[in-house]
Design a protein around this nucleic acid. Structure first.
Lengths: 341, 341
DNA sequence: CTGTTAGCGCATTCAA
DNA sequence: TTGAATGCGCTAACAG
């Protein structure tokens, strides 16, 4: 609760002197005074009032982390370990760089803009924002912005993004499925954003099918519902339809594992009756039996790189590559049936 | 970027009038002026400067969420779905109540105190804080504090806490194991804090063993290492020792599932060679095969209740029960061997 | 109903 | 080397 003024009074010096000590301007204060003042600062457990800081410096050392998602009832995006791994990595980096993290899960771009202005945020990390909204946000906010896993729809702005070779990921999956004798698949997206990574992954699948003279209809792209109950219902209809496809390509391990478990509990054999693939290569794909064939990506690294890039922007350092696409790698396990025999 | 002054100038009124419009004090402003001013506020996309707000009101509408944990290398607490479920629920509640959430993962109580002072936080949620540190924090911070899953070591303060019937949970597990013919167990804690829920769960086990005339040595309580690699090493030594116990009682599904998967990958049959139990009843226990027998708890509800309690404290409403202990329930699945035959 | 003003805590400029 | 004064944006008390 003590202010610079309080400290100054106690030390018998002026507020300026205290400020100078606080900021380590040793050349402006005599060693003796400095020591004396520092002692009082420590004993009082002085902490600067960030409100005053914001006012006077017009910035706050706050990094806003926006998970661009509709709030769901009874379930949080964070429950997908993919998100929480990113978030955990960012929290660590932000704190280590001496910044503060404000977390907000919303899909209201106006709220994002308000937030960033009101708090004089120094920068924002934006996760899974649809391209059209990226445009609005980049127009409305003039602090550094780093996106994660976004695809942009215009060339008007220079966007900074940490993404993934989504298309290549889809290709890898499709290539593997085709090699295993599959001729049809259904793509289960975790996200209704039409311009995110999910469609890219699907396009990758389509390309490979085309290369092999096979067809993959647009209608095979199927966004899953936001909440668990509706997804269960959806899985049931798949079972009832007796799987018109030989493989279900999920856009996350989280969903793949959930579905696989549902199927097992309902007497469906994976991969005998239906093949399943995932995406992310996190714990979920390794935990289930059969373990899920999936695409590996380093989600912690995504978070870390995002903050690194943001820090460079904050320090006006040059960012060599504003759109980093992390590599993917196929991880073959046991959830895909070999149809060639 | 526009301030109240800017708006006032544009509208040809005084800053006070603008402030009155902003605060909905309709009785102090004529409808005509109000409309005119409101229009400009909207068109300018005005957002208040929270720095000035902090300064003048001496509070910030920030809720600090502290996950009291040493930062781990290459892994975040958040990767345990238990933490992320709590976090997700809190984020939602905080935002819905018109507050802001600042997230910090640290085990440095001084950092916590500094943070809360610097930002004039209105309240804090503190997760998994050792009792001795709760004491220090309660002494140093005079805003409302709500703990999650903490056990306190003194009666000097009134602590607010959302906890769990940890001891009962341990009892349930032990009762079931004993009923299944088990006469020894090893308790694998996820946490080195000696005064948290893990020891309570273990005490619960001890009590039940005692009731049955069995002994459960203190040395059966075994905290697991913080990082995945060391845990793998630990699991290996268990395998090499050929399991001196018939059951491994884990203090989280996350760890139980991890261990179970390790064992399976190394040719150990669960539950034939070793029985395993978990704690939490989240996705992890349902995903693996065999599914893990565990103790159910509602982690989202923990987060929600914590914020509710904090809001009551903030509004000076009465909190009927300052230490809510959520109920537990045994969920029997297939990871425990029946030793009675 | 509307305007003026002081002061919140800090950094910064200028003066001593 | 130190001190005094100013202003950041806002609220609230007071004056008109």
């Amino acid at each position: 609760m003590s202010t610079i003024k309080d400290i100054a009074k106690k030390a018998g010096v002026s507020p300026t002197t205290v400020a100078n000590v606080l900021h380590g301007k040793t050349n402006k204060v005599s060693p003796a005074t400095s020591k004396k003042v520092q002692a009082i600062i420590d004993s009082e457990n002085y902490a600067p009032n960030m409100g005053a800081m914001i006012l006077v410096r017009n910035n706050s050392r706050i990094i806003g982390v926006i998970m661009f998602m509709k709030p769901r009832q009874g379930e949080s995006v964070l429950e997908d370990p993919f998100s929480s791994a990113i978030l955990g990595a960012m929290e660590q980096e932000i704190r280590m760089n001496g910044y503060y993290m404000m977390l907000c899960i919303t899909s209201d771009e106006n709220e994002v803009v308000r937030l960033s202005k009101a708090w004089k945020m120094e920068g924002l990390i934006l996760v899974w924002v649809p391209g059209t909204i990226c445009r609005i946000i980049n127009q409305s906010i003039d602090t550094p912005l780093v996106y994660i896993d976004c695809y942009f729809t215009d060339e008007d702005h220079l966007y900074h993004n940490i993404g993934l070779q989504d298309r290549e990921g889809g290709q890898e999956i499709a290539r593997y499925l085709v090699a295993m004798g599959h001729r049809s698949l259904m793509f289960l997206a975790n996200n209704v954003n039409v311009l995110g990574g999910d469609p890219q992954r699907f396009f990758g699948c389509q390309e490979v099918f085309l290369e092999h003279g096979l067809q993959l209809e647009d209608s095979s792209f199927c966004p899953l519902p936001d909440n668990r109950k509706d997804r269960s219902r959806f899985y049931r209809t798949l079972v009832e339809q007796n799987f018109p496809y030989t493989a279900l390509v999920f856009s996350s391990d989280y969903l793949a594992a959930e579905a696989l478990t549902y199927f097992k509990e309902h007497g469906i054999e994976v991969p005998d009756q239906i093949s399943i693939t995932g995406f992310d290569d996190n714990m979920y794909s390794r935990l289930v039996t059969p373990r899920i064939t999936t695409i590996h990506q380093d989600s912690r690294e995504k978070g870390r790189l995002a903050i690194c890039m943001l820090m460079k922007l904050l320090h006006n350092e040059e960012v060599e590559n504003p759109n980093i696409l992390l590599p993917v790698k196929l991880v073959i396990r046991e959830s895909v049936k070999d149809l060639r025999s």
